[in-house]
Write a protein that binds this DNA or RNA. Structure first.
Length: 423
RNA sequence: GGACAGGUGGCCGAGUGGUUUAAGGCGCACGCCUGGAAAGCGUGUGGUGGGGCAACUCACUCGCGGGUUCGAAUCCCGCCCUGUCCGCCA
């Protein structure tokens, strides 16, 4: 969320940011509306506060007179009139504030200057690692997975519906291995604090990280309780310190959590949905970082490298893509996608999104730090990245490490967790 | 789910309609004192929003949201959270 001040102080910057995202046509009228509402709101505030000051003074005078045994009926009458005016103005103010907040909650973040303008076609591959294996003779993961008895899509669909997966035997163990391997690396080598968090969260948390209000239709919800299944651990983990002022000496700091992730993927049906490519429930280890504004860029690079290091240890060829403004998520200021090569399906699969949000989430979630004793609190910067999402990593392993006989070599780093060298 | 008790500043804690416009204490910061420190003494000490170049000033803020009143931490209603007991339970 932006500071409302952006309307009166930097509206051109805001317009330009929306243009870079290719959203200006849709959002220009919204921005104009925000500008007008901010003006209106401040003028009402002045009117109402003027009257409140008068009422406060009058009430004190009433108290003084009563104590002195004097008559105060005239003041009580004028106070009543003031009260009526105040009530009316406050109703107007509340309406205008709700409208302004709705607008602010619906505006995407500004992207950083190094983010390319435009849509998906302007995404930029900034580095590649490893030799992509040629696709010749490599079967897609869903064939190999079913063949090896480690993937059971049929029964997943029976139990829950399409897009829900059953892993069996070594497939189930592989999921457990990835969870432990990823978390162990982040905790032991990258300095993250391991956290285990709820996967059902309230509306305030979902709003804090900017899934709500705009993307409510994409979320699984428990309507009776007004609770939501998390689409990513980003939500509960970033919200750990919602409405708090964190100790500046702890920054930068990182948290890592495993959670299942639930996504309705409304409207995505039919597109790259076979096998493990796009499912409604999947598992992921997520890194979340808090830092100061000054540390933001450096932290974004660090976070992204933490995710890349996992792919390198797994020996899976990948590329890092800097997303163009129009392809960058709603709340992000800059986002790198990590895409792993899957020779069986012949595609680069997104296995991690590493984003920096600036203070966009922190303002919504009210997460602050005090730079130094006696100074005003400032919003932290928040970052998060998958480290990593399991299903597509599993797909890449089943394809990249596929043997001619249909078995699959287990990446060396996973062998201590798997107790086997081959699937 | 039911019953009861609670929720006041960084922390403790007083406060049942008007010098409480939140006492007092702890902590913290600064100053005095000291060779240096402790103790002691003094001063200061939250957040949000509005106005102002600024000094400053106004409003709001006692879990949250409404209501009553000229005036609410205080009275009324709803909700949330915490604790204890009961019920249920991996």
């Amino acid at each position: 969320m932006h500071d409302a001040r952006i309307f009166r102080e930097q509206v051109e910057l805001l317009r330009d940011g929306m243009r870079r995202r290719q959203k200006l046509d849709a959002l220009a009228p919204v921005i104009d509306c925000g500008l007008a509402l901010d003006l209106e709101r401040r003028s009402i505030i002045q009117a109402v506060e003027e009257r409140k000051a008068a009422r406060n003074a009058s009430s004190q005078e009433v108290a003084r007179r009563k104590k002195a045994g004097e008559d105060a009926d005239d003041l009580i009458a004028s106070g009543r009139a003031l009260g009526e005016q105040i009530q009316k103005l406050e109703e107007e103010l509340a309406a205008s504030e709700v409208e302004l907040r709705d607008i602010l909650l619906g505006l995407p973040n500004l992207t950083l200057p190094d983010v390319p303008e435009g849509g998906e076609e302007a995404n930029r591959i900034v580095r590649t690692w490893g030799e992509p294996r040629p696709s010749d003779g490599v079967k897609p993961h869903w064939e190999i997975g079913e063949q090896l008895g480690i993937l059971d899509l049929q029964r997943g669909a029976k139990i829950s519906g399409s897009g829900f997966i059953v892993f069996r035997g070594l497939g189930a163990r592989l999921t457990r291995a990835l969870m432990n391997f990823f978390i162990d690396v982040h905790v032991r080598e990258h300095g993250y604090e391991e956290v285990w968090v709820p996967v059902v969260v309230n509306r305030a948390s979902m709003t804090g990280t900017s899934q709500l209000p705009k993307f409510e239709d994409d979320m699984y919800a428990l309507k009776e309780e007004d609770l939501f299944l998390v689409p990513t651990a980003e939500v509960p983990v970033t919200n750990l310190y919602r409405d708090e002022i964190v100790d500046a000496s702890t920054l930068p700091r990182g948290f890592v959590a495993y959670t299942p992730c639930f996504r309705r993927e409304a409207g995505a049906a039919g597109k790259d949905t076979r096998g493990l490519l796009r499912v409604h429930e999947f598992d992921k280890v997520e890194m979340v970082r808090y830092c100061t504004p000054e540390q933001g860029d450096e932290e974004h690079e660090r976070l992204t490298k933490h995710a890349e290091s996992l792919l390198e240890r797994l020996g899976l060829p990948y590329r890092r893509v800097l997303l163009a403004a129009g392809d960058t998520g709603f709340g992000a200021a800059r986002c790198y996608d990590l895409e792993v090569w899957a020779p069986g399906v012949g595609k680069w699969l997104e296995v991690s999104s590493c984003s920096t949000f600036g203070d966009f989430q922190a303002r919504r979630a009210n997460i602050r730090y005090r730079p130094a004793q006696g100074e005003k609190p400032r919003f932290v910067h928040t970052l998060n990245g998958s480290g990593l999402a399991f299903p597509r990593v599993i797909a890449a392993i089943l394809e990249h490490y596929q043997l001619e006989d249909g078995h699959v070599t287990v990446p060396e780093v996973l062998r201590p967790y798997m107790a086997t060298e081959v699937l």
